[in-house]
Design a protein around this nucleic acid. Structure first.
Length: 414
DNA sequence: TCTGGGGTCCTAGGACCC
DNA sequence: TCTGGGGTCCTAGGACCC
């Protein structure tokens, strides 16, 4: 049996944890650049605030209902997530951290699933203050489904017999299934497949044709046959990406250079934290796709690097050379994307017979930079062309303090 | 003025091999 | 009159996830 444990309204719950005066009050959390709503407390959901709602379009509603607003604070959420996962790990040796706010575990008991679910839930709530829901079922797909049904059942839901599963599938909308997104949902509903039970009732050939092999796995899982194993080993990443919209559009090559340098050095840091090196670096400029009356362009380039690298200087230099090649003067750009692919572990980097490159493991400069920055704060030591507070930097007007990870931000109790 | 950021997997088709 | 059968690798695009 699998359990899916999911934090309720995770980002909103994190913010509320340190602002208890917002308990019982509608709370929303915004995406980067304070663009749209990405988390809502139950009260905000009840007011009809939609996931993905565009912030500036609902400002009046927010004022009218006195909704508390936060910019997203991933430092805080990441730290709270680690605390939740650590608590869950005490209940099972097999944990797959699936996202920042949810994990699958193998259920270590063979009976008494309800009690087990309540034990996990109560422990996490008591030790971290974050409310969670626990869904238990024979497969991961069904555990996901059980978890979503927790809203009705009070935080815990067990689907352990064929009768219970069948009844649940009949009530469950096909578009809410794990693995059915917008495109598939539209197609399925058009031909009269509305519930999970309808989908499960279709022949496997139909599933294979319409939804490919992943659909076949899901279909089997709905029948209780486990096809998606728990992956409790963290796989190496295949690519890393830094991409962020600017607070305002720009066509200035200087702005774009500055942004590219900033993003590329962030990317280099991500690579080093991942202990991997890039063999290919891609860079892309993007115009604002919502401004349909303005000319659109998404120029990009992929650069094969001479050596696999993860030091800031080489990554930045490659990114800048790419930028010069793709820059188009006549467009207002909203975003630059810097991507590293063809990643290899830094311990497996081969040296090149024909160059003086000394290998990543001898890269003392990066190590010193990272040490100083982790001790004195991000940006203490950086390359000269990187700016600390650029004018195009993303908006984070409603940012909360880093209560759990910065000495200066720790809550003071009188 | 203002619409997120980061990933994964699968398929089809083309280029190439013997 | 008529042009095989089996592969691999890569890329672009589309679907999905949170």
């Amino acid at each position: 049996m699998f359990a899916l444990i999911d934090c309720n309204n995770f980002y909103a719950s994190c913010e509320r944890l340190f602002k208890p005066e917002f308990n019982g009050v509608p709370v929303i959390v915004l995406s980067n650049n304070d663009g749209c709503v990405i988390a809502r407390s139950n009260e905000a959901k009840e007011l009809g605030i939609k996931m993905g709602a565009v912030f500036y379009m609902i400002e009046q509603e927010i004022k009218d209902h006195k909704i508390a607003v936060f910019s997203s604070n991933y430092t805080l959420y990441g730290d709270m997530s680690a605390r939740v996962m650590t608590n869950i790990a005490r209940f099972s040796p097999d944990v797959e951290v699936y996202s920042i706010d949810e994990c699958f575990i193998k259920v270590p008991v063979t009976t008494g699933y309800e009690k087990f679910a309540h034990d996990v839930r109560n422990a996490v709530i008591k030790n971290t203050g974050i409310p969670v829901s626990v869904g238990i079922a024979p497969t991961k797909t069904l555990a996901k489904l059980a978890n979503k049904m927790c809203k009705r059942t009070g935080g815990v839901c067990v689907l352990d017999t064929e009768d219970v599963i069948t009844a649940a599938l009949k009530e469950y909308q096909v578009e809410d299934l794990w693995g059915i997104g917008r495109a598939y949902a539209t197609q399925l509903i058009k031909i009269g497949i509305n519930t999970a039970a309808d989908l499960r009732g279709m022949p496997i050939g139909f599933i294979q044709e319409k939804l490919t092999i992943q659909g076949v796995r899901m279909w089997n899982e709905l029948w209780g046959k486990s096809c998606i194993p728990l992956s409790d080993i963290i796989e190496r990443k295949k690519g890393l990406c830094t991409s962020r919209a600017f607070s305002k559009l720009t066509n200035s090559i200087d702005d774009l250079r500055e942004a590219t340098v900033n993003y590329a050095s962030r990317l280099a840091l991500k690579l080093r934290r991942d202990n991997s090196c890039a063999t290919v670096l891609s860079i892309r400029l993007l115009t604002n796709r919502f401004k349909t009356d303005k000319p659109q362009a998404y120029p990009s380039i992929s650069i094969s690097l001479v050596h696999p690298v993860n030091n800031t200087h080489d990554i930045v230099a490659a990114a800048l050379s790419g930028l010069e090649k793709i820059y188009l003067p006549g467009y207002m750009f909203q975003k630059v994307e810097v991507m590293a692919t063809g990643l290899i572990p830094e311990t497996e980097v081969q040296l090149n017979l024909f160059s003086s490159f000394n290998g990543v493991l001898n890269d003392k400069l990066s190590k010193i930079m990272d040490d100083i920055n982790s001790h004195y704060g991000v940006g203490t030591l950086r390359i000269a062309s990187e700016s600390l507070k650029p004018h195009w930097a993303m908006k984070r007007k409603y940012l909360s303090p880093n209560y759990t990870s910065k000495w200066a931000d720790i809550l003071k109790v009188k």
